[in-house]
Design a protein around this nucleic acid. Structure first.
Length: 738
DNA sequence: AGCACGCCGACT
DNA sequence: GTCGGCGTGCTC
């Protein structure tokens, strides 16, 4: 241990799990170093951006080996001590490199060594030399001339984002003009953003359950308390959120609202903006970088009253956080599936705890984890059992499609019902969780199947784009005209995808407007919103789509919901498959009969007697969940135990296995009675994108035991002689075993 | 992650 | 005899 004045402990943007110590620059003028500021530091023979996480008085590294930081990049800390505490906790919990976890909370530009001033937006203005400059000298530099004109036309400084929006990328031109001394970068002070409450819109009158829910959460303002807003579809959860947000904003707090998918932000955003007297900021990965950065700044400076976003928004610093809302909390999209594998929902709970504020988890189909927390008394349940607006629950029928003459997967009974609803001028929603035309192509002569050469999967036929595509590795091929194996001419597309259903419907009901909603039909930004709006206006008679269509969208004119294939979820390898299937079915069923017209749901299955389906449809989701929880308890599965998955992949299967076997052997004896190791076993999809994948599951009834074990085990794993080309990663609380 | 250092095959 | 393959280890 050495003692030196001015040690900076820095988390570096590199895949290392420990911070590095540097000495503070002495005699260098500039901002005083403080935790939360970014620094530029020498690292190896290069340089790195890092974030000061602490200023210790002593370092384990000898003073003479401490290098001085090269620059302090921010005048003011970007992250407060609280933000740092939260993010460092998250990095530790999910065993992810410190610096990378911290930088994932910052806009991408700030991951590079660009300095920032103390606030405001980055902009450019003319120097006195530039104002006096004559355009003739720019005759041969049209882009520079454009930029110069734009800056001269504006009053004072122009934000970079505006320049880019008007003129495209002008960074090169700006650099050239700066060299001439005509322009200089500057900061532009933010202008206050006013609330946009449309009228004196106070919304509908709350029913007693909604009022009770609002009251309970409001009573918890200012302290940590998780709530489960357990509301059947159409029970008015959003209205409860709005009242709570309104109250919190009136008290001067900031709120964080998380939704599982980008597609849900426009709709909820519009509703919140219309009703709340505060600036709303929307953040998700679908926005351009500049826009994200601007939103991030408004959130961090406290200008945003409400931050609405997808899981990554949980990492954004909010100085006056007073309420967290996680809508559709059961949704698996909250778990990041690569890199920093955090759960947005679980981190939201931790954040609320650190901020000392209530958190509301909303769902019609709560996750078993959350239900277990309700039972243990950690979370408080706020039931909303009544459908708002007096809509009745839909009637549900199972259609046994064994030995039925199907038309593109639709049974006669379903077709009949569709026809009846169409005649009555109603809308129909059909759900099939498979995009493309057909999930495989096969040769009728020799039995060849369109397998992916890089994955254990079939190539899906996309007929409109004339492609065979692998949905797992992205491989694209032109469909063969003759069998690649035997040369036979009789290639057949087997099975149903949304494209094929669409084609069948257009043949069966010529001229009928059908909206297909899947990842292929909503490629571009705004496509989904446009389609959904048109659907809501009644421009389509049939809505056909994948999961996309089921998540939180309202279609008041839909009176019939058809589930084309309920069986795919019944026999999954994952123990969570039934839970997911149940949530999906309940969610899709909730799309029917939301307005004054009663709804019907028809579910096609080849297993009408399957116990899961029967319990779910006869007794409802709560009964299903209770049975599922009982089974989990018996089997000692989550939420009654805790898991960590080590995933390994390599160009050869044996390499991944060897690594995991060595990893299992390296688990020290003292932990053997606290944790159980399962495997190594091959991943459910063993080959993916040309790599062989295996995994090792670690399980313990006690979270603390598991953490203690990992503290010991992970350093050992890192020291293991890793066979060539083996990539491995740790997944804490894995949600998906694929 | 970079980028070194460090031991085994085809070339002036 | 060297140039260079990428395997292993370090960076305050």
């Amino acid at each position: 241990m050495t003692s030196v004045a001015g040690i900076l402990r820095v988390a570096i943007a590199a895949p290392v799990s420990t911070p590095f110590d540097y000495s503070a620059p002495v005699g260098l003028d500039g901002p005083t170093p403080r935790p939360g500021q970014r620094v530029l530091v020498p690292f190896g023979r290069g340089r790195r951006v890092g974030i000061i996480i602490a200023m210790p008085t002593a370092s384990p590294v000898p003073a003479e080996r401490l290098k001085p930081v090269m620059a302090i990049l921010d005048d003011e800390p970007l992250l407060t001590e609280n933000d740092l505490g939260f993010l460092l906790w998250a990095a530790d919990y999910y065993r992810y490199p410190l610096g990378e976890a911290l930088f994932s909370a910052l806009p991408t530009r700030l991951r590079r060594a660009v300095p920032t001033g103390s606030g405001g937006r980055q902009g450019w203005r003319l120097t006195s030399q530039g104002r006096a400059g004559c355009p003739e000298t720019l005759a041969r530099a049209p882009k520079q001339a454009q930029v110069w004109e734009r800056l001269r036309g504006g009053s004072g400084a122009v934000p970079s984002s505006e320049l880019t929006a008007d003129l495209g990328d002008c960074s090169a031109a700006l650099r050239a003009l700066a060299r001439r001394g005509w322009v200089e970068p500057c900061r532009i002070a933010p202008c206050a953003v006013a609330g946009e409450r449309s009228l004196a819109d106070h919304g509908p009158v709350l029913n007693p359950e909604q009022r009770a829910a609002v009251e309970q959460v409001r009573a918890a303002f200012g302290r940590f308390q998780p709530f489960l807003l357990d509301g059947v579809t159409a029970s008015g959860k959003t209205e409860v959120y709005i009242r709570l947000l309104d109250d919190l904003l009136a008290a001067g707090g900031q709120a964080l609202v998380l939704v599982p998918e980008i597609g849900l932000t426009p709709q909820l955003g519009r509703r919140l903006a219309a009703r709340l007297n505060a600036a709303l900021v929307v953040l998700h990965s679908g926005l351009p970088d500049a826009e994200r950065e601007e939103g991030w700044r408004r959130a961090v400076r406290g200008e945003a009253g409400v931050l609405l976003g997808t899981r990554s928004a949980v990492l954004v610093p909010l100085p006056r956080l007073g309420l967290v809302i996680v809508d559709e909390e059961h949704d698996l999209s909250f778990k990041q599936q690569e890199g920093f594998r955090y759960s947005g929902r679980d981190l939201a709970v931790r954040r609320a705890q650190l901020a000392g504020c209530p958190i509301v988890l909303g769902s019609a189909t709560p996750s078993l984890e959350t239900l277990a927390n309700v039972r243990s008394g950690r979370y408080r349940r706020l039931p909303l059992a009544q459908r708002a607006g007096g809509a009745g629950s839909p009637t549900v029928g199972l259609v046994d499609i064994r030995a039925q003459a199907l038309q593109a997967g639709l049974s006669p009974r379903l077709l009949e019902c569709i026809e009846r609803e169409l005649t009555a001028d109603n809308q129909v929603l059909l759900f099939l969780n498979r995009r493309g035309f057909a999930p495989l192509l096969t040769c009728h002569d020799c039995g060849w199947i369109s397998g992916c050469p890089r994955c254990d999967a079939r190539l899906t036929l996309h007929r409109s784009s004339h492609q065979l595509r692998c949905h797992h590795c992205g491989l694209v091929r032109v469909p063969p005209v003759r069998c690649p194996h035997c040369g036979g001419p009789d290639l057949r597309a087997l099975g149903q995808g949304t494209e094929r259903i669409e084609e069948m419907l257009s043949r069966r009901f010529p001229g009928l407007p059908v909206a297909r909603v899947d990842r292929d039909s909503t490629r571009r930004r705004g496509d989904l919103t446009d389609l959904l709006n048109a659907a809501r206006r009644g421009e389509f008679r049939i809505l056909l789509g994948t999961q996309m269509l089921t998540k939180g969208h309202h279609f008041p004119g839909v009176t019939l919901v058809g589930v084309l294939d309920a069986d795919s979820g019944l026999f999954g390898t994952d123990y969570r498959a039934p839970e997911r299937m149940a949530q999906l079915l309940i969610q899709v069923m909730g799309r029917a009969g939301r307005a004054e017209r009663p709804g019907h749901v028809l579910i096609q299955t080849r297993h009408p007697d399957h116990p899961f389906l029967r319990v779910l449809l006869r007794d409802g989701y709560p009964a299903f969940a209770e049975a599922a929880l009982a089974e989990r308890r018996t089997a000692a599965l989550p939420p009654f135990s805790h898991q960590v998955l080590i995933r390994a992949e390599a160009s050869e299967a044996a390499l991944a296995y060897d690594f995991l076997r060595a990893a299992a052997r390296a688990a020290a004896v003292p932990f053997r009675d606290q944790v159980v190791l399962w495997g190594p076993a091959s991943a459910p999809m063993e080959r993916r994108a040309g790599r062989w994948r295996a995994q090792l599951l670690v399980q313990s009834p006690r979270r603390a035991s598991l953490r203690g074990f990992l503290d010991h085990w992970i350093p050992v794993l890192k020291g293991l002689p890793t066979p060539a080309r083996v990539r491995w990663a740790i997944d804490v609380d894995p949600q998906d075993m694929t």
